[in-house]
Amino acid sequence: MDRLILNKAWMVRQLLSLLGCCLSVQALVCLRGLVRGALCRDCPVAVLGERSMSDRYSSNRSSNPSPEISPESLSLDEAIANLQQTQDPDLRYYAAWWLGRFRVNQPVVVDALLVALEDESSRSPDGGYPLRRNAARALGKLGELRALPGLMKCLDCEDYYVRGAAVESLGELGDRRCVPRLMAFLAGGLEAATLMPGKPHLREPYDLVLEALGSLGATEAIAQIQPFQAHFVEKVQYAAARALYQLTGENGYGEVLVQALAGPDLQLRRAALMDIGAVGYMPGAGAIANTLAENSLKLIALKGLLETHLETHLEQLAQAEHQPLSEQAIQTMDLMDGLL
């Protein structure tokens, strides 16, 4: 057997498992690097990618810093001080992410994030506003309605990613006052929803707009959302199906996501997994368990499914003294057991 090739393959696998397996290790590496003054530019992207996979669908709304990170890296006071200072843009950028990640919902944090939302000093080579992006994401996690006007203003920012982050956060805040403005993004229909010339993205973050409208229960947007099922980007198609399932409860839209689980692209299968979990399409449970993807992700998706189901089920049974677990809930847990 070729030792060299084996060793190389082993290293790659080890790296992959390190990157893939746990957010806390990654975050620790980044934050430790930062504390020492050494900055790794690639890390925030990776960390944030992971965040949107695991965090968005977690029901953990704890505002306390998680024990596995805080003592080793930033203290809460350090993070707040880093966000308030303006000398070191990189420290500020990380602090904004950190405070959102651990949902530190304190007035002083919200104030500092709102200031960061209008930052002019931190600019990326392509003219973007990285600090604004992180601040907008963090404000969505804190669930603080004071952020609404600032986030709405971000929808007009020239940076595509700031607009995307603001859209996502407005969906999380759950205040329907932003619905007309979000619907305006869809006004041009499919014809306007083309690639941005010279950029690796569309003109607007259509997938995030569709998702937000679904989470906000914007039934008035159904007619405008429907054409996007035929958009040329699959991710946008699935976002439309996801929103339409949330807005109509029709299984046909859930089935579109289930079919996506059989597609050839792993990234799209992962996205569809998370979508089915997030919207609680219970008939998709078996398909989630059987799709070719990491068990870790399937477990997160099934957990989302189970929790959405339990919440609605418990509401219906709110008066009952003893709340039995439904057959569907038990089946979902059996599927989860099989993936451990």
């Binding site: 029901s59 953990n60 929790e307 339990l310 989860m336």
Partner: peptide
């Protein structure tokens, strides 16, 4: 437990 899914699974185990 802070997780709804976990509370449900523990309930199922007890049942």
């Amino acid at each position: 437990d802070e997780s709804t899914a976990l509370r449900a699974r523990a309930t199922l185990a007890l049942q």
